[in-house]
Design a protein around this nucleic acid. Structure first.
Lengths: 328, 328
DNA sequence: CTGAAAGCGCTTACAG
DNA sequence: CTGAAAGCGCTTACAG
């Protein structure tokens, strides 16, 4: 039989209220009484029922996390960062993905209504920003790990997309490259615009101009990265460096170049964005996004909000780092 | 203000008990009454509080999942499979990792004591098998995704390690290879013994003998895979194929071979195990473990147990598949 | 400093 | 078929 607060109270010869007080570190408990209660708690190995505490207090010390899918390369890193941070505060993490589309979202919504968690961490699944904003407006504390430049109306964590792209540009120019091509991500993502602007800006400051015909749109997949590169080569304009807006695209770029007999990095340098595990194995030069740290920062933001702090209006910005490897 | 069962009852002019009955699909409720209650529920958008239901019923419709770390390549796949399966039954997934070692485990243990979840899915973190068995013996429903051949005393899901290794052996022999080397995983893992036995058995049946000096121990990391390969080459015995016990090791093998000027697969074929995403990008021939399916199967097993079914004594076995790519 | 009582929002025998 | 009451295991005013 599970031991309850009533049993502890009886054994310690006090009321349940007093046990509750020492459990929660409330002041105004006689030192001797508190010691006795603590002793009993230790003796019987009492741990308060999470469910009962949750119901009585109206909050569960549990946070929900909504992500598109754990299959995406760096999602695990973000979740790991969040879990670590939450865990050290004793919070649990309820994980939701949108892997099964609308059905997943419906399940998630019903858990929101059931108040299964106190606050929400989210990496925006496609086309859900307005829904998430609704939840926030209805009073659910929300923090977003913003990987696509959506700029929501609530606290978020982002990276320096623009500055990361600038670093890539400066590095390539310093390495002697002059003819640049870019394989972007989906044009409607804020982060894509920032990466493109930062890259072109930095090049401009260095007196390097990029031919618009050498900027082609990808969709963050390896396949489209390869297709885009073929398009680039077919255009007939010379280029000696490609900036891809994420690592998966960059891998596609590398493949297409190799297939066409162009040597990386001798003929063409390739730089990606993200620094997913595969980037290391492929020796890909890339702009690192601190995914783990983003998860941690988001969790901290949410926890402080749950503890009553007022969240910052502006996004928390984490720095990117240029990781120079073999390809560029 | 949140709407409660009391409000629904009042609006529908019935007692809370009756609302509860229609909510839970109990029989013996007048059709008209039930319809009226359902109408009110829909009108006010009532969703029962997960916490209150959990307390009253003594179970939370939530499952815990304990994994070593989300950083490990295929953990995300397993978790995704589990989440999908649980979600379709309306269950939540509380995620725990052991990324911070003993501290993590202590937090996990306290959540177990607090009865934060009804059952546990686990990929065994290092040296925790006996602890997990204790939890099981104390009555917590547990299902293990057994990636290392531990054979616990409770339901588990495994893959055909032996048969996967046999398939690799047959494939390599059919491709004309005759001189085999093996880079194993940690020798104390059951799966490592199975993969080695299966490989050597199949070769034996085909009349091929493996020199024991060409079997070296790795630890499932790329670094040690490379080191092991150098050892292999230093031994001076010829070999034209390497079977590595996981993909990360295989990548190390490939690197070391390339560094030594040996061409893959012309000089040496390389076959791995797992089929993590990087394997595809590296064009690595490998034995695929259906990680997603393992997560799904484990979740189904646990759910049926929670619904009252008696779990199978023997492990559920999922088949591996040989994925032939460029390296072997 | 401490206890009795009410309340959190449900479910579940027990009666009828 | 339905309701009143007790109970799940805590927390929190309210008194003293």
């Amino acid at each position: 039989m599970r031991v309850t607060i009533a049993e502890v109270a009886q054994r310690a010869q006090v009321s349940k209220a007093t046990v509750s007080r020492v459990l929660n570190g409330k002041p105004d408990v006689d030192a001797a009484t508190a010691a006795r209660v603590r002793q009993v708690i230790a003796d019987v190995g009492y741990v308060p029922s999470a469910r009962a505490v949750g119901l009585a207090r109206g909050r569960a010390r549990t946070v929900g996390m909504l992500v598109p899918s754990l299959t995406w390369p760096w999602t695990g890193e973000v979740v790991q960062g969040a879990v670590d941070e939450l865990e050290s505060d004793g919070y649990g993490l309820l994980l939701y993905t949108v892997n099964r589309g609308a059905e997943s979202l419906a399940q998630f919504a019903s858990h929101v209504s059931a108040k299964a968690f106190d606050g929400l961490l989210v990496i925006e699944p496609p086309d859900t920003l307005s829904y998430i904003e609704t939840l926030h407006d209805q009073g659910l504390p929300v923090v977003m790990i913003d990987d696509r430049g959506s700029r929501p109306g609530f606290p978020s964590v982002i990276t320096t997309n623009r500055e990361g792209a600038r670093a890539a540009a400066r590095h390539l120019v310093a390495a002697g490259r002059r003819h640049f091509a870019v394989v972007t991500g989906p044009a409607d993502f804020g982060c894509v615009r920032e990466r493109l602007d930062g890259f072109l800006d930095a090049l401009g400051e260095l007196g390097v101009h990029v031919d618009p015909r050498l900027v082609v749109e990808g969709d963050f997949t390896t396949e489209r990265g390869a297709v885009a590169t073929e398009k680039l080569m077919a255009a007939g304009l010379p280029f000696d460096a490609v900036f891809a807006h994420n690592d998966l695209s960059a891998l596609g770029v590398t493949k297409a170049l190799a297939a066409a007999g162009r040597v990386v990095p001798d003929d063409v340098a390739v730089v990606g964005f993200d620094d997913i595990p595969i980037a290391g194995h492929a020796d890909l030069t890339t702009v690192r996004q601190p995914m783990r740290e983003m998860g941690e920062a988001a969790a901290r933001l949410l926890l402080s909000r749950l503890e009553g702090a007022t969240p910052p209006v502006d996004p928390v910005v984490l720095p990117t780092t240029l990781v120079v490897r073999r390809t560029g």
